[in-house]
Design a protein around this nucleic acid. Structure first.
Lengths: 215, 215
DNA sequence: TAGATTGTTAATCGATTAACAATC
DNA sequence: TAGATTGTTAATCGATTAACAATC
């Protein structure tokens, strides 16, 4: 039986991977128990928030003691579904696509990229970071046959919508989108965008602000 | 005289680059005016929110007409400080570092990477995507002499804190951090984190949820 | 003019933070 | 035991959404 995964507020969901990083550090140091206070201090946030976030994963702590480290890690990992490796396709072997393929750590995050796609004839039927590269024409058919549910989209903006539609046609249910464009897809498709310009905008705005207040 | 940059709520700040993408698309199509309604439809958000967000940039629209496209673009670009190119250093030439160096578009986002740093002897004194690569030992001195204020941090977790401290020692005021670790730096240093695991966690959790509700 | 849109004030909603009893 | 921590309910805070007058 699979435990039911109850959802959480988006901000909570985004903090969970950060807790996990800390916890795995502590585990490597041989620590067995941890309190919300410790985690909070490490991340510079409020301990009440940590406690509330952790409770959404279903973990039960012990007053005065805190949480069993291994048990807590398991709960977070399960909540994020990182205990089940999910196969994925990646489309677009530009710099970013290659970087993601080469970043082994995503295996710790439940993501297993099993094939890559591009239009560049030079790349077809080669391997990049041990992953086979195929023509985009084969995407839909292969996705269906291999029952792929996650697509990583690292193509230029101009191709993003078209490729995303092919992913959906192939039965892909969730798209990790790195192209700075709003994908127009059916409502039941999960889209998670990584827009680097957002993050950079925050940085440059704040830096300008800082310089203005200094001047 | 530089116009004063008033700050905005973080969610607003993060939406502004997305508005800009849409507006530049419209500009390329030769359109001269735009209403909040149009932008909102394009992004699938509320038009009231768009109006409020835009007003934080200081733009004044015309009832019934909307906004002058060029004027609106200028306001957002100025608000994000993307009209002033800021020189930056990048440290860590792994896959991600190389991808960022190769992504010319950041020049549209006010970021100009003028030098890269690594420890790999093979890379030193070569050029990657037309940017010179230097030994990390030279980082502090060069940052000071060139008055660099932004550092892009794409090193492994194990090196992140140490390199970040070198950046600060070199006078860098804002760090765009891609290493999944909390940097411990003075309060006046601006840190903007890009934690891909956060985004991936949201995706895998939601996909698991979807499958659970289907089953 | 009538309809559409802006800009702003007020209401709602949801997340964070505070308070506190329970407890190892 | 006393102090520290959990889990939960209530209060606060801030962002989103609604309402509406002004206006081209």
């Amino acid at each position: 039986m699979t435990k039911k995964l109850i959802s959480a507020p988006l901000p909570t969901l985004k903090r969970l991977p950060r807790y996990l990083h800390i916890l795995q550090d502590l585990k490597a140091k041989g620590i067995k128990q941890v309190s919300a206070t410790i985690i909070a201090e490490e991340l510079g946030i409020d301990s009440i928030q940590v406690r509330k976030d952790l409770s959404t994963t279903g973990i039960i702590g012990k007053p005065k003691i805190g949480f069993e480290l291994n048990e807590l890690i398991d709960h977070i990992v399960h909540f994020l579904n990182w205990d089940n490796m999910t196969d994925a396709f990646l489309v677009g072997l530009g710099g970013l696509g290659k970087a993601i393929l080469g970043y082994d750590n995503f295996k710790n995050y439940g993501l297993n990229i099993v094939a890559a796609f591009d239009t560049d004839p030079e790349l077809l039927d080669t391997k990049v970071h041990c992953v086979g590269v195929f023509d985009i024409k084969k995407l839909e058919d292969l996705a269906q046959r291999m029952k792929i549910h996650i697509g990583v989209l690292t193509v230029p903006v101009s191709a993003a919508q078209e490729v995303a539609e092919k992913m959906v046609a192939g039965g892909i249910k969730a798209i990790w989108n790195f192209a700075p464009v709003k994908l127009k897809l059916p409502d039941n498709i999960i889209i998670e965008n990584v827009f680097l310009s957002q993050s950079l905008g925050v940085l440059t705005h704040r830096l300008a602000q800082l310089k203005n207040t200094e001047a």
